[in-house]
Amino acid sequence: MRLSPPVTQKMAWAACWAAAFFAIAALLTIIIYVFARGVGEIGWAFLSTDPIGGLSGQGGIRSAIVGTIYIVVLTLAMAAPLGIGAGIYLAEYAGDNWFTRIVRWVIETLAGVPSIVFGLFGFALFVIALNLSFCILAGALTLACLVLPTIIRTTEEAIKAVPQGHREGSLALGATKWQTIRHVVLPAAMPGIVTAIILAIGRSVEETACLYVTMGGSANMPITPLDNGRTLSLHLFYLAMNTNAMEKALATGVMLIIIIVIINAITRWLSSRWMIRMQGRV
């Protein structure tokens, strides 16, 4: 039996709506489940005590919060200058020849390499070869390598989106190349670059695999970056795998989702502002 075109169309529309509802339902299931079971644990005591660690699952998340802040700050401190510099280099100085094409290809490929492969590299180089042993710094160095390709690509795209006329105008007024980049190109590309940084923050907060093999995962409060530590995501993983404290794991999940929602909101706000700005100027 052949269905008539209008009937087929009705069925197809139904399938489209169903697929969209599935996506929303999946999101809502995750968020409602995590919040419903996890939010009750969250309180001052949960935020202000260290986890006990090991198989117990008791305690709060204070040292994991500190670990997360350490990781985010250190990763950015290393990856942001290098990545933005490399992005400026590729967009403004490098030109287009066989070498830069290979470089772009390497960057593009590394952006898709699984984080655990970066973890292998980081473990072998930072933890073993450079003898840092398991510590926050080794984790941050590994994570910096992981977010570097994304920062480079996003920066390069943001700079390339600045209209050529801006540069020509500035050069025609007698500015040097660097003055043009510093005072004309970078300000125009800034929202795009800031977006790159915020994406990197988000990645650092949610990343687990490459930190699992480099940070050590101690539950104790880290004092210096050379201490063994854990992030919130790692803490969640240890709770889920080694203990029965699922409510605490879910409460940690609540914290992670809140952080990600805030980061998403900032990115959306910035990129909408950027759109307005670019449209206003072109």
């Binding site: 996506a23 929303i24 999101l27 995750i30 969640l236 889920a240 998403n264």
Partner: peptide, 25 residues
Amino acid sequence: QIVRPAVELLVGIPSVVYGLVGLLL
């Protein structure tokens, strides 16, 4: 305007949270 942000949020949720919900549900 509902589906887009929902999909964007799905990208951001940490993989350990997916794992945890999978493990429990």
